[in-house]
Design a protein around this nucleic acid. Structure first.
Lengths: 155, 155
DNA sequence: TCTTTAATTGCATGCGCATGCAAATATCTT
DNA sequence: AAGATATTTGCATGCGCATGCAATTAAAGA
């Protein structure tokens, strides 16, 4: 590790940089992501009464065969807790966007099935979502993400 | 491969791509970020009894002049709601990591001041945080972020 | 082989935490 | 005095963890 003679030398232990360049870059990245996600979430909530997770769930359901997924599958796809998914399915059902259907072969399993209303709601929300996202990313956010990484590497 | 002639042409209306490539890439990005953040959060919580926001707050305080910031400044830095910051400051105070101090010149203002205990806790957590982050990013996550973006542009 | 018992799996529920929004309060500023 | 600004507080939401219930699977014991 080049005996540090001089300028803000990165400090290493083994091959791992200890100082905070990665940390700062990561912080910036999370801020950008959080900001855009908040924007998306607000648009969905205000215009379509959907939370971000609910939107993602509808999206996953609409893409899946027979428009149905089991709780575990939803949880895995959304990287959410099983309990969170259970309650989300409950919300979707309460709004008539999906229904719960018992798995015939495994009576422990529960399918969340997209309703026509759910599909319509999703397709409707989708255009707003895409528009909002593209607008946000069009503002140079991708470039910021990229530059954050460059800073992190120092090159 | 830059001049994509004939391959999966993006669909445009005006200058805005309508299809879901950005959406998919964004989804992947958020998943990666959420996963790493969860990892960081768990490490901080388990090892140091700190939430992610609290860690960031301590970091900001430790970097600021006199180790103190007003609620608004903290809120702006963390991109958090004022009420959230107010309650976070309360938690920090309850644990003795910071104290509230009235602004002498503006009696509406409240400084959150880092205590020695708070600084020690932060410095302690910091090494775990950096290690965890570097480990996570070392697993090729930066590259994934990057590739997500490349997919989004189609180049 | 059939039945009984133990372990696992899928989902739901109680609870607490962190957050956002809106309203209240206190303090400037003009 | 009237409006603006800083913070706190009441309330609601969404999430994760721990727990419980029901169904499935595996393993014995007859």
């Amino acid at each position: 590790m080049s005996i540090h003679v001089g300028k803000t030398p990165p400090i290493f232990v083994g091959a791992i940089p200890i100082m905070s360049k990665n940390s700062d870059a990561w912080f910036r990245l999370t801020q950008i992501v959080a900001t855009v996600e908040a924007e998306l979430g607000k648009a969905l909530q205000v215009e379509h009464g959907l939370g971000l997770s609910e939107y993602r769930a509808l999206e996953a359901l609409s893409r899946s065969a027979d428009s149905e997924l089991r709780m575990q599958e939803l949880a895995a796809h959304l990287h959410l807790n099983q309990s969170s998914v259970s309650r989300m399915a409950e919300r979707l059902e309460r709004e008539g966007l999906a229904i719960r259907d018992l798995c015939p072969d495994d009576k422990r399993g529960v399918y969340t099935v997209l309703t026509d209303k759910g599909r319509a709601r999703f397709e409707n929300a989708r255009s707003d979502f895409e528009r909002t996202l593209n607008a946000a990313l069009g503002e140079g956010e991708w470039e910021e993400l990229l530059s954050a990484r460059l800073v992190a590497r120092g090159d």
